[in-house]
């Protein structure tokens, strides 16, 4: 029997052979690279660094009135295409080095690619060729208040594969919390959580929200047996419903450091994604 398939024959495995990490020069992106290298080592996957040169910046530079304002001083200066190209090349070289160093440290194979185009589209395209896309959850916003980047939102919505979003300062130490309702996609999320649980203290916190006691019991038993089959212990938390609020609250109350959710979770559709990313308190893995 395929351990990665449920009784109905759906593929519930979480197999990761190739990880793409999308990079820019923000601190979140550095955090993403470190997490990606660590996960690649744990999952025996190959690591690819991707840096997208924003075509819109080149378009702006080519316009006759393209100007740039310094954020600190407010001073304006001409936005020059040659200087932009040089700056981006420098950034790319720096990132290439960072990827090589991180991969060497984690003893994983790595590659680095520079693409030019619209960032979200390029990242989504690159994700299609990988099993897991990792990216910093926020770019550099206009204001100090945290706002999820357009790119992160687009990737969360459009990437055909699982997406791991994290912010600077976050580390994945292997205490996942998984939202589980018994659906096929939540089965897959359960399997992903099991893979990411700490090897020495293998346990996954399962958050269920089933009003009917018997059904809840059955749901738990099922999750428990699934996890047991993967050699992982289950710990349960209950909620009235599986909303983003209850998930975030559970993370805050427990020692969980990674939120694992099926990407097709109804709460994550439309504005829900924005809502989630705004309230994000720990790395989030959207499982597809």
């Amino acid at each position: 029997m395929n351990p990665a398939a449920d009784s109905a024959g759906n593929d519930t495995g979480f197999v990761v052979r190739r990880i793409v990490v999308a990079m820019d020069s923000s601190p979140h992106s550095r955090a993403a690279l470190d997490a990606a290298a660590a996960l690649a080592a744990r999952l025996h996957a190959e690591l690819e660094g991707l840096f997208v040169e924003d075509i819109d910046l080149f378009n702006l530079a080519a316009l006759p009135f393209g100007r740039e304002f310094n954020l600190a001083t407010g001073a304006a200066r001409a936005f020059d295409a040659a200087a932009l190209a040089e700056q981006l090349a420098r950034q790319a070289a720096e990132m290439r080095r960072a990827v090589a160093v991180a991969a060497a440290r984690a003893h994983v194979r790595s590659s680095f690619r520079v693409a030019r185009g619209r960032i979200a589209a390029e990242i989504v395209a690159a994700a299609a060729a990988a099993d897991l896309l990792i990216l910093g959850a926020a770019g550099m916003g206009l204001t100090s208040r945290f706002r999820p980047g357009r790119v992160a939102l687009a990737a969360a919505a459009l990437a055909p594969r699982s997406v791991l979003l994290l912010r600077s300062g976050a580390a994945i130490r292997g205490r996942p919390l998984v939202a589980y309702d018994g659906s096929p996609s939540s089965e897959k999320a359960l399997a992903a959580a099991a893979r990411l649980a700490d090897a020495t203290d293998a346990r996954v916190r399962v958050l269920t929200a089933e009003a009917d006691a018997k059904k809840a019991e059955a749901l738990r038993a099922r999750a428990e047996s699934r996890l047991a089959a993967l050699g992982v212990r289950a710990v349960f938390s209950d909620a009235f419903e599986l909303t983003l609020d209850t998930m975030c609250g559970t993370v805050q109350r427990t020692d969980a450091d990674l939120m694992v959710i099926a990407a097709d979770n109804p709460h994550l559709q439309g504005e829900g994604r924005l809502h989630l990313l705004q309230r994000i308190v720990c790395p989030v893995l959207l499982v597809r």
């Binding site: 819109d56 910046l57 378009n59 702006l60 316009l63 393209g66 740039e68 954020l71 936005f79």
Partner: peptide, 11 residues
């Protein structure tokens, strides 16, 4: 309003 390496730009 776009974010550039140094600051902001408009297109």
């Amino acid at each position: 309003i776009m974010r550039t390496q140094m600051g902001l730009a408009m297109a």
